[in-house]
Design a protein around this nucleic acid. Structure first.
Lengths: 208, 208
DNA sequence: GTCTATACAAGGATAGAC
DNA sequence: GTCTATCCTTGTATAGAC
């Protein structure tokens, strides 16, 4: 069972707790089977319920799935924003981006199945659901764009490639880490965060 | 309609041609809907047929999907291998890897919907199908590992990160390019291949 | 080779008991 | 709040005509 603190961290009522357990169980099933193949009976089984009982908590399968998909992005976004805001003053824009990259990957890995569920399922979800989820994704992209362009202007990040390309490169390469085999997450005492920051900022070329 | 030369390039019989058109149509539907939500009637519609008629060409939905998923990987693998073999003698291992990266992305983009279909659908496919497809994926990974480790030994690629991590970083970041908006594929006269090679080899940090 | 018609199974959704 | 029972739709797969 995957758990992690809520951004706000308040205590949950019994009903909210059940709802939360359903969401986390649904995330696990979505990761494994994908959107359409995920049956309500599968989700119910992970929380020890019958399929029909889910309708007390959610109006429909889509209602539940949308909650799963929205949850992960919100959490990651909040986490990164908070981490960057907590940074001491006096850092360069490049250093701030460097820390944001670490926070982003930390947050992705901390969501358990939520981020993987989002990343694997988004494109399979009904178009109208995708539309409703888009703003949350877009907001985070814009936020990152701000950090990147500050780092370009300060001369820390290369200016010969446009911001949106830099952003996609950073986000995409970090998001794929969730599918790394467990054995690669920690090598020679170096964490995935450590290795990915090296690769994203300095590339695979041998330093001279 | 997406077309591209077969690795072998021979002419197709009428029946083989129909079969091919079904495969390409299926790829397009898979990209849009995902594995389980892809209906045989959708696929049939893209080729102007009725769902039942597909069974003349394929034994089952899975039989068809497996052909789609296997096709893309084989094509990409062959393409990269051929491109690297055609390289002139006397290149360094680093230069060979540099060319392989370009060939890989070229091939990915040349497959039309086949590679996207593979990448989006693989994890949703039934476990036994995944098992049968794994060797093809693994082979390509091993092949790339060879190019990478040669470049590490020649001192062109960094040695402080292990080969599998370097390989995943390279493959994953290139594979995500298929989802870039069309507008980013060509910026300031720089191609996606050009930009991605810069980012993979030298990172986002401003050169000094 | 492709069509139409149909059997058959699966799963989302609802109703009412407890 | 959760269960059981059931309705209803959808989609795979098959059979046989053309």
């Amino acid at each position: 069972m995957t758990t992690f603190d809520l951004p706000s961290g308040q205590r949950l009522s019994k009903s909210e707790d059940t709802r939360r357990r359903i969401v986390l169980g649904a995330a696990a099933v979505l990761v494994e089977k994908g959107y359409a193949a995920t049956r309500l009976s599968d989700i119910a089984a992970t929380v020890g319920m019958q399929a029909g009982s889910l309708y007390y908590h959610f109006d429909s399968k889509d209602d539940l799935v949308e909650e799963v998909l929205g949850f992960g992005v919100r959490y990651v976004h909040e986490y990164v924003r908070a981490a960057v805001e907590d940074l001491p003053d006096g850092l360069t824009a490049g250093e701030r981006l460097y820390e944001a990259v670490a926070a982003f990957l930390d947050a992705l890995l901390a969501t358990g199945d939520l981020s993987p569920a989002h990343l694997r399922t988004f494109h399979q979800a009904p178009p109208d659901m995708q539309e409703r989820l888009r703003p949350g994704r877009r907001d985070f992209g814009h936020y990152l764009d701000g950090l990147i362009s500050a780092a370009v202007e300060s001369g820390d990040v290369r200016s010969d490639i446009e911001i949106p390309v830099l952003r996609l490169f950073i986000i995409n390469s970090l998001e794929r880490v969730i599918d790394w085999p467990e054995s690669l997450r920690e090598r020679d005492g170096r964490s995935a965060v450590d290795m990915m920051r090296t690769l994203i900022f300095d590339g695979v070329r041998a330093p001279r």
